[in-house]
């Protein structure tokens, strides 16, 4: 009787050990497997960013893109040339936009206007927009901070 009791306790212990070990393996492997699966968001590169394909941008338009944690603006001139600037207005950090009618970069907050070289030409902005370098590699457009 005692013997039987003892052996059932032993079995029980073995079960716990077995399941515990299994649980432990899972609790170690689960994070590792989740870690190995790459996240959907492409890796954030702050120095340069892929904005899109040449065909996505019509001449005479401007597009806001995310550059690190600040917005940038990519402008395609009517000549087809690309230019990129920081889209943060130098006056009060609003996001600037391209105005087709003005052929200029315009800030909606206080009507600040920059020309297509990023120079502040009217309104309150005290400084030109920071210029970025545009690299067209094949069909794809990259914007990088070194200008």
């Amino acid at each position: 009787m005692v013997q039987e009791h003892r052996s059932s306790r032993r079995n029980f212990l073995n079960y716990i050990l077995g399941f515990g070990f299994l649980g432990w393996i899972i609790s170690v492997l689960y994070p590792i497997i989740r870690y190995i699966i790459p996240p959907k968001i492409p890796e954030a590169k702050v120095k340069s960013v892929k904005v899109g394909k040449v065909g996505d941008f019509n001449p005479g338009t401007g597009t806001i893109f995310k550059f690190g944690n600040k917005p940038g603006i990519l402008i395609r001139l009517e000549t087809g040339e690309f230019r990129a600037f920081s889209a943060v207005c130098t006056h009060l950090d609003c996001t600037v936009q391209y105005r087709e009618d003005m052929k200029a970069i315009w800030c909606a907050c206080h009507n600040g206007v920059y020309d297509l070289n990023g120079r502040n030409i009217s309104g309150p902005p005290p400084r030109p927009l920071e210029a970025f370098r545009v690299i067209v590699r094949g069909d794809e457009i990259y914007v990088s901070k070194e200008g």
Partner: peptide, 19 residues
């Protein structure tokens, strides 16, 4: 949860060693 699992395992292991 994972701490609990490990703790159970630790206790079980301890008992096993005793045994």
């Amino acid at each position: 949860i994972s701490t609990l699992i490990i703790t159970v395992l630790v206790i079980a292991l301890y008992l096993k060693i005793k045994q």
